[in-house]
């Protein structure tokens, strides 16, 4: 007789051996993005077409800046985990490793670029 719970006996037997934490992270970020998406689209729609000073002043305000920062940070983390699913499905060996590395670097680069631009616009508005 094995003194082991049914859960312990089943853990890690799926083809990926793990994944619950990944799925839960996608669920949480998806819920956040459902709320953020309409707000973000309205913010971007209001900003496109403005002159350069207008863009800086608009994203210098709290609401557009916070919505944009949240959408891009949560969205790119969702993107990194989402591409990982596709990479695991379609690629193997070295190609898989390279694709995961490229995906993670790209995601964080987009986050850094967007936050830098938003921070600079916020500071410029304070100076004026």
């Amino acid at each position: 007789m094995r003194y082991i719970t049914p859960r312990k006996a089943a853990e890690g037997l799926g083809s990926a051996h793990s994944g619950t934490a990944h799925h839960w992270a996608m669920t949480v970020s998806a819920c956040a993005l459902v709320l953020l998406t309409p707000a973000f689209m309205l913010v971007v729609g209001s900003a496109i077409g403005l002159p350069r000073e207008g863009v800086a002043a608009y994203f210098g305000r709290p609401y557009p800046a916070i919505i944009t920062a949240l959408f891009i940070v949560v969205g790119m983390l969702h993107f990194i985990k989402g591409t990982r699913i596709m990479i695991d499905d379609y690629l193997n060996h070295t190609e898989r490793k390279v694709a995961i590395i490229v995906s993670v670097i790209f995601g964080w680069a987009v986050i850094a670029a967007a936050l830098f631009a938003l921070a600079k616009m916020a500071l410029v508005t304070i100076v004026i």
Partner: peptide
């Protein structure tokens, strides 16, 4: 989901260009 890369790259490029220089924007 993956094609949204195009939109986010264009948008973030536009945002960074706005704080970079008049020519970049």
């Amino acid at each position: 989901g993956h094609a949204l890369v195009a939109g986010i790259v264009l948008l973030v490029w536009w945002l960074v260009a706005a704080v970079a220089s008049p020519g970049a924007f």
